[in-house]
Design a protein around this nucleic acid. Sequence first.
RNA 1: GCCGCCAUAGCUCAGCUGGUUAGAGCGCUAGAUUGUGGAUCUAGAGGUCCCCCGUUCGAUCCGGGGUGGCGGUACCA
Length: 502
Amino acid sequence: MSEQKKRAKLPRGFVDLSAADIAATEKMLAAIKDSYALYGFEPVETPLVEYTDALGKFLPDQDRPNEGVFSFQDDDEQWLSLRYDLTAPLARYVAEHFDRLPKPYRSYRVGNVFRNEKPGPGRYRQFMQFDADTIGTSSVAADAELCMMAADTLERLGIERGKYVIKVNNRKVLDGVMESIGLGGEENAGRRLTVLRAIDKLDRLGPEGVRLLLGPGRKDESGDFTKGAGLDASAVSRVLNFTGWKDAGTGAPGTSGSSEATLANFEDAVGQSQFGREGVEDLKVFRNLIETANYQDRILIDPSVVRGLEYYTGPVFEADLTFEVPGEDGKPIRFGSIGGGGRYDGLVGRFRSEDVPATGFSIGVSRLYAALKAINSPIVTGAARRGPVVVLVLDQAEIARYQNFVAQLRSAGIAAELYLGSSGMNAQLKYADKRGALCAVIQGSNERAEGKVAIRDLVLGAELAAATKDRADYIELRTRAQFSVPESELVAAVREVLGRHR
RNA sequence: GCCGCCAUAGCUCAGCUGGUUAGAGCGCUAGAUUGUGGAUCUAGAGGUCCCCCGUUCGAUCCGGGGUGGCGGUACCA
């Protein structure tokens, strides 16, 4: 290695996908698609790039896009950005084609989205989302339907009932609670945001951490200090009580189980707040829909769900995996949220004179894939790759003859390839093995003299090769895992071997 | 963004108070086996010891500053 060789290095926060990854992802996507289609959603696809202002991501008081999005300027100086979710582009699409779309408009879409921010475990700068949205109705039935569909979809993906939960909350209720502790009004918007962010951290920091964030502030392990919301003690316990954790941290996430008890608590928590009461009413209707459809064991009302502070306006949902998996260092890993959504009545309205009610749900495909791999879900592990039949080249002078074998197999519809390297037989078999080939075709001078080809069953061969100790066993091996046929029977013999391992 | 830890072969890491040819295991590529995947043995390829400056006769090692990676935290549509 000398001068300036380029560094072969993937940018951080991005991933390469192997053949196995792609096969597994495609199976996942097919399952999700089936589920969404069954609920009557139709596909639509928008490009990776949008005008930055359509995404609404300019920095305040500047003509430059937000740093969280990958952006560049067109030749007319217009700012363009890579999409950072699938919802904002959908809002643009619906607004642009409003007149010709059926309303309510039900659609799904899948694709990669990009975020230009610090990657972490399970957080990438490019990742795949799979969304379904209903636009043009404010019916709670639309929200409930999405939650039920989310549950069905997770089960279709091989996640058993009980290993996941769809949590639901309502932003209006949260706002009502704020109002009841004196944080209503425009002037308290900043503090409300701080309180919501604190609640959002409940599952990670626990009630004590959140208590500090609601009050004076919290110092983390590295010594960094986060300023708190500065609420007084009674307001702090009122908020904590609302989220389901009592003073001493009794209770735990997702264990309450009873949406009914949660709702009763809500009514108390929002007090006289008009907005809050509306939210509670919505949730009651929601709960009835869920119970009538018999989903109450999978879809729970949970006051700690916050999400999407900027644009969700009513119900918010989150799909959580509840199981843990031992990590490489032995410490248990919990995957947590693998999807979410909610009602965003204001988004389409950014492009039109009137507001258009809308609600949607999004699955984080990349993260879900990692989780499914960890539990060895058949949907991803069963997607084993299957390589082509490999025709070995034992005599470079006869390469045209070998190529002819390959052509025969291909015209019979069997994936096949000629070994194109320059190594010996040993290495060629290793190659075939690595490719995941089931079968190799071999013709050396001996076979050629007789007008025959040897067909090698690589699956059987692997078993026998591993067990074989002495030379005598090779005879046995050959008869079972490898046999010769006349050249004219090549295709039939290969078919027979492939048929063994279907 | 803020705080902390780390940086030697593709991977995991050794490298004696600073001493001239920088190592191991695994992996990779081959050979032993006219012509059979494992195992074994042998050989080979692969390094600006992250970068720059400084201290020193001499720096992979010591000091300063960068850069990159990891973890935590903040933000997160």
